[in-house]
Amino acid sequence: MNNNKNTAELILDTAQRLVQEVGFNGFSYAHIAEKVGIRTASIHYHFPNKEDLGEALIARYQREFVIKVDQIDNETQDNLEKIRRYINIFSIPVDTYCTCLSVMLSSDLATLTEKVREKLAAFFTANLEWLERVLEQGRSEGQLRFEGSAQTQAHKILTSLQGAQLLARTFRDANRFNLIGEGVISAFT
């Protein structure tokens, strides 16, 4: 049983890297099988179809996100620092000129199943709700300054970071992400 879990995780790890490199529609189970060194039947055992794989990928991605922002919340009460650490989460794939899973899945949105689209929307909702809470708390505690609603600012942050990933990937220049990340931080001081 433990071996099955390890195989499923290895499949998910490989599929996530492929999505981040070529998009959800840019690979098949044969690509995963080749990279993992298993038969496609083994992949179908864990994920009967690509929709199941997509749902599992985004569900795992959201669980990891919740863990990361909980860790941020537990490690600091400084809301500007929370936003810095949130930006750092988005900077991780930039070093390999990839984008996060959610950005790549969004680019394939028209071809994703309704279940995968719903899970993707839930992931973005979790991001926006966390950001809104941090922004509201930061403004009420005097740590953050901004005009307008926290909801609008949260959307600006999320879209800025996603766009920054795309620019860094397109130009193969991580500094473009850093430039935008710094701009996000300076907007609240």
Rank of each mutant, 00 (worst) to 15 (best):
I157V: 15
L101T: 06
R169Q: 02
D13G: 07
G142W: 03
R145K: 11
E114M: 00
A126F: 00
E64N: 12
S107E: 07
L167N: 04
F177C: 02
R139T: 01
Q153N: 06
Q77N: 14
R84G: 06
R176C: 03
T14A: 05
L18F: 11
K115T: 08
P48W: 00
Q77C: 11
T125G: 05
T7G: 01
T170I: 12
T14W: 05
K119V: 01
T96Y: 11
L80N: 01
L131K: 02
E129L: 04
N6T: 03
K68H: 12
T96Q: 13
A150S: 04
F123W: 06
I87M: 13
K82E: 02
R39N: 15
A41R: 11
I180Y: 05
I43P: 00
S106G: 11
I180K: 05
D70I: 03
E64H: 10
R63A: 11
A168L: 03
E75H: 03
S91N: 06
N175K: 15
T152P: 00
I185N: 05
N25Q: 15
Q137A: 02
I87G: 12
R85G: 15
V69I: 14
M1G: 13
N127A: 01
T111Q: 12
E132N: 04
K5I: 05
A122H: 13
G138T: 13
T40P: 14
L167I: 09
A15M: 04
T14C: 09
N6C: 00
L135G: 01
G148F: 07
R117M: 06
A56Q: 15
S102W: 00
W130Q: 02
N74T: 13
Q165M: 15
L120W: 08
N74I: 06
Q77A: 15
E81V: 11
K115Q: 06
L101I: 10
E55K: 13
V36A: 15
A33I: 01
L179I: 04
P93W: 01
R117Y: 06
L80I: 05
A164M: 12
I58Y: 08
R133Y: 08
G26W: 11
N49Y: 04
S160A: 15
V103D: 03
A15P: 05
R133S: 10
F90R: 11
H155V: 04
P93D: 02
A30N: 12
L10D: 03
V66H: 09
L144M: 08
Q151T: 12
A8W: 08
E182T: 15
C100N: 07
Y61L: 09
L158Y: 08
T99H: 03
F177Y: 10
F171Q: 12
F124L: 02
D73T: 10
G26D: 10
I72E: 07
Q165R: 14
D73A: 12
S149T: 11
A110M: 03
L57V: 06
R63H: 11
G26F: 10
D108V: 06
Q162C: 14
N178V: 13
R176M: 10
Q143C: 07
K5R: 07
E9I: 09
D52I: 12
Q77P: 08
S102H: 00
R84Q: 14
M1D: 10
F27K: 09
D108T: 11
L120T: 07
S106V: 01
I11S: 06
F27V: 08
R17Y: 02
R60K: 14
